[in-house]
Design a protein around this nucleic acid. Sequence first.
RNA 1: GCCCCCGUAGCUCAGCUGGAUAGAGCAGCGGAUUUCUAAUCCGCCGGUCGCAGGUUCGAAUCCUGCCGGGGGUGCCA
Length: 611
Amino acid sequence: MGYSVHSMNLLTLLQDRIRLALTGLVDDPTPYAAMVKAANDAKFGDYQANCAMSLSKVLGKKPPEVAKEIVARLPQDDLFEKVEIAGPGFINLRFRTEWLAAQMQAIAKGGRLGIAPAATPKTFVIDFSGPNVAKPLHVGHLRSTVIGDSLCRLLRFLGHQVIGDNHLGDWGLQFGMLLHGYKHHRDEAALQADAVRELARVYVMLRKKVKPAEDVEDEPANAKNYPPEELAESQAVLAACRQETSKLHAGDPENLQLWKQFMPWAMAEIEAIYRRLDIHFDQTLGESFYHSMLAEVVRDLKAKGIAEDSRGAVAILFGENEPAAIIQSSHGAYTYTTTDLATIRYRVETWNPDVLLYVVDFRQALHFKNLFIVARRWGYDRPEFHHVSFGSVLDPKTGKPFKTSGGGVAELEQLISEAVQHAAKMYEQICRERRERGDEVPEFSPEELKQVHEAVGIGAVKYADLSQNRESDYGFSVEKMTSLEGNTATYMQYAYVRNRGIFRKGDENSDLYRTHPPQVYLEQPQERALALQLLRFEEALQAAAADYRPNVITAYLWDLAKTYSGFFQNCPVLKAETPALRQSRLLLCDLTARTIQKGLELLGIRTIERM
RNA sequence: GCCCCCGUAGCUCAGCUGGAUAGAGCAGCGGAUUUCUAAUCCGCCGGUCGCAGGUUCGAAUCCUGCCGGGGGUGCCA
């Protein structure tokens, strides 16, 4: 591209300054420099350094004295308008407004909004979505898919190498059930009509049949809960499904043939949803891909003394009270631990990543904890491993997780459609109200209208998920997420639309504000606040990336939108007092629009120009 | 039994590598606008941050115990 990126991270800029000022005062200034943060009240300034209190003990001086000393050691230049010491020893920092204005002009150029690509790019492998191929995507897959996709987009934008990998469940017992069900319970007519749905029906039926047997294996006392005949049948069916799985794994031609036949059917359905949701993977290497490597993995782990024979199985032991991880069952079958270990080996050998992320349900915490321990023992000690865990999607009616089988209610496709329809309904209603008031309503072709509905409906679903701290559970309520008020995708999309409307109305070409940014004036407090907030974008993205938390981005966008509306309310743009001020405000508008657009893009949410 | 997570306003939740009077949205109440698309904005109301101790100049945040809820716990993933 050729343009140089003007990097502007206010936080690191200030931390560097404080670090410099502390050099010579303390041995290791870094932890104290880290105590710089955004001021929690604008009346204190823009940022505050809180290190003087902590240093007080180390230096044997009173906090205000320490603060005074630090302030005296700050470089004397034109960065700050005001530096003052307040309260028990806070150092309050306020940027010079002209300096902020100059930054606006600088970050307007180029396409990165002042965010420089990482100086030392890392390679990330992100394991996300990972649906069970035997059944339709359900609401439980939403979080992994949406969070994982967002992390891919974010880390990639920050300049890292990212490999998003969809580790499909395409080779386990679920396929044995599918094979058994297909052979014994298929409805040929239904299969012709809708193969995927028929396979799903068969799968759900088999799950139900097999449940008593699994219950009793978990806890023999449960046997009393089932009639003996039912239990016996269940056990027979489970054994048969395991048999089919084993045959598939052993390379039985018929089962392999059926597997190859089922896969494209199942994938077509899943891929349609990914397309609709605008989710992309760099790799789709499911469990089946690793099957041929598992025997060698077990052999190697045994040879290295990491795994051992135990109670008829091959297991990895962790400690007295810790449950072991089975890598080969007493029937000879490999488990997901084995597959995950083979996957680690493959990923490390193929991509040599710095970080491996697993975007998976919190209930698998123990599995991943053990998996990472084993990977270290196995010699993979360079990469970082992180279980990016998340809470459950609850059914707001029951307050319990959506059921994975036993009904089509929770199918993802259906929920998305419901959200889109709801968004469409709300949109029609708003348009009617606008017409009644005599307001202008954008004219759309049916195709454009559909795009608006999709963008709003799907954006709502994604935003509702991503704006939640990923560790907590949340209730999936279409009404709430498509709400027009509050911190929702719709609000952000509308803020963007309103902003773009200014350029249309004023017949202004926003490209000019990017190639030839005008001088910026920040005379009104709302203008200054907006500029400051725009400059915090990188800070937000870095914080989101550091903890793999997309909700940090939504929180930033929400703050930005509120700051912008303060500006919008108080600062006329097209009717500004002077042409220079109009130019300046248009630049602020364009930067805001681009920041909203980029932020939403990193969440996988589309913007539209009119709505 | 053992291990992990959660408990913040009526509701849904942010904030949690300690920092100034604990923040939003919704709901409720009261206002604004001859508009740059009102899917808007402003104000008010509302909190013993589960409870009790401890560490600290300072605790929603760290430590211990207890209560309440959820999850996991060797051959499913």
